[in-house]
Simulated assay, not measured.
Amino acid sequence: MPTIFSHALIPLAAGAITGRRRVSARLAMAGALLAMLPDLDVIGFRFGIGYASEWGHRGFTHSFVFAALMAGIVALFWRPARSFPAWLFLLACIASHPLLDMLTDGGQGVMLLWPFDTTRYFLPWHPIRVSPIGARFFSERGLETVWSELTLIWLPAAMIAGMSFMLRVRRLP
């Protein structure tokens, strides 16, 4: 998995790219928090749930169905998420998590199509170093992960968001 920070970056960058008129800062922040949500499944390790289980890491919480349900629950209880565009934005934020995970070079893949299919998928290209879980993050391997994310996620996201901002500023009267 990419680090939790990179999962949160995608919704924040998307909010910056679209502008506050379309995605409020609060909605972008909610999207960032929800993009990190699928990795709560690592708590299953403490309860003996194996990685390969559909209830384990990168299992059901990394599916499109989970993303749609979580976005729906948020919309049910939070008024700013009740429009279709807001719900769709939150859905995309949560779904960005497993899609990023599919670009990593480790793990067993993600159950993107659960409950209809329990196959774990990867994309054919794996440029992002998988993040070590727990204290191992503060190791040479963790630094390699951070470097791959800075070059492959953070820098492109910052450049696109910056260009988008500059284009919006130029359009202002």
Rank of each mutant, 00 (worst) to 15 (best):
M70Q: 12
A71L: 08
A71V: 13
G72Y: 15
G72W: 15
I73H: 00
I73F: 07
I73Y: 03
V74S: 07
A75K: 05
L76T: 04
F77W: 15
F77R: 13
R79G: 04
P80H: 10
S83V: 05
F84C: 09
P85Q: 13
A86D: 08
A86Q: 04
F89M: 11
F89I: 07
L90N: 06
L90I: 05
L91I: 06
A92K: 02
C93T: 07
I94L: 10
S96E: 05
H97Q: 12
P98Q: 03
L99R: 08
L100D: 03
L100T: 06
D101F: 09
M102S: 13
M102H: 10
L103C: 14
L103G: 09
T104M: 14
T104Y: 06
T104P: 11
D105I: 06
G107M: 10
Q108A: 14
G109C: 08
V110I: 13
V110M: 14
M111K: 12
M111S: 14
M111F: 12
L112G: 02
L112Y: 04
L112R: 01
L113T: 13
W114I: 02
W114Q: 02
P115V: 12
P115M: 10
F116S: 13
F116I: 14
F116G: 14
T118E: 15
T119N: 10
R120P: 02
R120Q: 03
R120M: 04
Y121W: 15
Y121M: 13
L123A: 01
L123E: 01
P124L: 12
H126L: 02
H126V: 01
P127V: 12
I128K: 00
R129L: 03
R129V: 09
R129F: 07
I133F: 11
I133L: 14
A135V: 08
R136T: 02
R136I: 00
F138H: 00
S139M: 01
S139E: 01
S139V: 01
S139A: 05
R141F: 03
R141M: 04
G142P: 00
L143V: 05
E144I: 05
T145Y: 00
T145M: 01
